[in-house]
Amino acid sequence: MSTPTCPLQSRRCGGCPLLHLPYEEQLAQKQQKARALLERYAPVAPILGQADPWHYRNKAIATFTQGRGGLQAGIYAAGTHHVLPMPQAGCLLQDEVLNQTLKAALDAARTCRWPAFDEDRGTGLVRHLLVRRGVHTGQVMVVLVTSDPRLPGSRNFVAALRKAAPWVTTVVHNCNPRRTSAVLGRDVRVLYGPGHILDTLCGLKFTISASSFYQVNPAQTEVLYHKAMEAAALTGKETVLDAYCGTGTIGLCAMAAGAGRLIGVEKTPAAVKDAGANAARNGIRNARFFCADATHWIGEAAREGLSPDVVFLDPPRAGTTPEFIAAVTAMKPQRIVYVSCDPETLARDVALFARRSWQATGFQPVDLFPHTEHLETVCTLVPKK
């Protein structure tokens, strides 16, 4: 498989550090890392790579900067806040429609003559562009992030954007006045359309808002979730607990696969709202979602006697906590399906589970992020006999 070149690769973009390697070598490297970290606990299955590992990302973020030719937008150089302007051909990892949308949004912002936000001085207006696409529905969202809630010329921006990119179905204004590396703020105003997009995953429809967590590689996410459902071995009567549930994707897929009852826990309010809407949209009634920190909530639930049959957890890169593991153990589920985005924290947590008399039965690596060092893994845990 030939490896295309990117003009930003020599300028320390950092977005795809393995781009210089043939894809087969990338997979071999990730397989070796997974085995080195995890094989001491259980067998590691062959990694599941992507048939076409290009333009797979359904979400993209660009940062505004003031360049010599006026307003520019691009990606930070690795380890810095220096913005590298987007190449003319777009990013090799991003959906090609999103590459075109970013260009159209930048041009529309230029017509409004908005100044880029300066992090050091705290001056300027426009900070970031966030774009998302429902690959199966074709719906596209553009989120304009500014430092000020006032946005003069917002109607002109929407008109110019829609003229250049008529496929855009919603435009959102997000205000983030804080001196922070976080992209989004809390203030949200819909400028055009419904304020969200829809997509289909594993046969279910999902609502995606600006701040909702939703896997960026839909093709490989379906591979990952099918493996998670296989690991859960659902029979149709189980009570399922979906911790760190985001918009409810894993738990709702479990309901579609045959679970009897779903309880989801997520700390992001917008994601919890979307999870409830997703359950209703798919006609799933026996599902309930709670907005809370997973560790705190599960500790309380264990003390109150909740005893799910299967627990899914898909924590952030930092992994879960010893308190979470202790609470899950007290619930005495039949099995735990751990979906990890970092094999190092997964290895740490599997060791903690082992101290609580849990045994890993196998690991399934899935490459959701070709040309990067990230790796997703499905781990099945059962009580030790």
Rank of each mutant, 00 (worst) to 15 (best):
L18W: 13
V44T: 06
E39N: 09
D95K: 09
L27Q: 04
A34N: 02
Q32N: 14
L71E: 01
R57M: 01
R68G: 10
A104D: 03
P17I: 02
A77E: 13
L93R: 00
H55K: 04
G74I: 03
A77L: 10
L38R: 13
I47P: 00
P7Q: 02
G79P: 00
G15L: 01
D52E: 14
P22F: 11
K103F: 12
K30F: 10
L93M: 09
M1I: 02
C16P: 00
H55I: 03
A109S: 13
A28N: 11
A78W: 12
R40D: 10
Q31R: 08
P85E: 08
G74F: 07
T111S: 13
G67T: 12
A42V: 05
A109Y: 04
L98K: 04
F64D: 05
E24V: 13
M1L: 06
K30Q: 11
P7G: 00
A105V: 03
G69Q: 15
A45H: 14
L21C: 05
C6Q: 02
P4Y: 05
V97K: 15
G49Q: 00
N99R: 07
A62D: 03
M1Y: 10
M86E: 13
N58E: 12
V44N: 05
M86N: 04
Q100V: 00
E96S: 15
P43F: 13
T3R: 09
G14N: 05
L92C: 03
Q29W: 11
A28M: 10
R12L: 07
E24P: 01
Y56W: 14
L84M: 08
M1R: 06
R110H: 11
N99W: 06
R68M: 14
A109I: 02
T5G: 12
G67W: 14
T80K: 12
Y41L: 09
E39K: 13
T65M: 11
A42F: 08
D95N: 14
L48V: 14
C16R: 00
P43I: 07
A51C: 04
Q66F: 11
A62C: 04
L93W: 02
G90R: 00
P17A: 04
E39G: 11
T65A: 13
L106F: 10
W54I: 00
A78F: 13
S2F: 08
A51N: 12
T3H: 02
R110W: 06
L37Q: 08
D107W: 14
I75V: 15
H20S: 14
L21R: 10
A89S: 15
I75E: 06
F64Q: 06
